[in-house]
């Protein structure tokens, strides 16, 4: 496994904005996740070599952050917020509805590898609760009908 030429160039550009190389760790791990889909041990080893850093340093950092995925997830990662405002506005029902609809539990992936369902903490969109994020996009003011419509649009 290796970064594409384009990603390598992107990384060099990012690096030029920082006085020390370690500052480019989070951007580099984001690039890796975008390119490979997740950040496994093997990918961390590659990144360590690529950045000429200790793999332990990288692992120590990567394991701290909830957005870095250690393994492959479904094509669509459904992240439902269950913090206070969303919870008051029915996030629990939303999670139950998706579980039933996709016939999976939280932290599970559908057999066709299309959807993975997870619960996340506050997404910073409390005024339009309940809220979920699917991959990069936010979906707000959720209802069961809206979920039907959103999930049917994703192929």
């Amino acid at each position: 496994m290796e970064f594409s030429q384009e990603t390598k160039q992107k990384f060099q550009e990012i690096l030029s904005h920082y006085p020390v190389k370690t500052a480019a760790v989070l951007p580099a791990v984001h690039l890796a996740q975008e390119e490979f889909g997740y950040v496994s041990e093997e990918i961390i080893e590659y990144l360590a070599k690529f950045m000429d850093m200790s793999p332990v340093f990288l692992k120590n950092t990567v394991s701290f952050y909830t957005m870095f995925k250690g393994k492959e997830t479904g094509k669509y990662l459904i992240q439902v917020c269950h913090t206070l405002s969303c919870s008051l506005m029915g996030a629990g029902n939303i999670i139950d509805y998706i579980k039933e609809k996709l016939n999976i539990d939280v932290w599970e992936t559908t057999p066709d590898k299309k959807f993975t369902l997870v619960k996340v903490e506050c997404l910073g969109s409390c005024g339009t609760a309940p809220v979920m994020q699917i991959n990069d996009d936010y979906y707000e003011n959720l209802t069961e009908e809206k979920i039907d419509e959103i999930l049917s649009r994703l192929s």
Partner: peptide
């Protein structure tokens, strides 16, 4: 002046 966006990765 250079302004650079630095994305976090989840962590209150």
């Amino acid at each position: 002046l250079d302004v650079q966006i630095h994305r976090g990765a989840g962590g209150y």
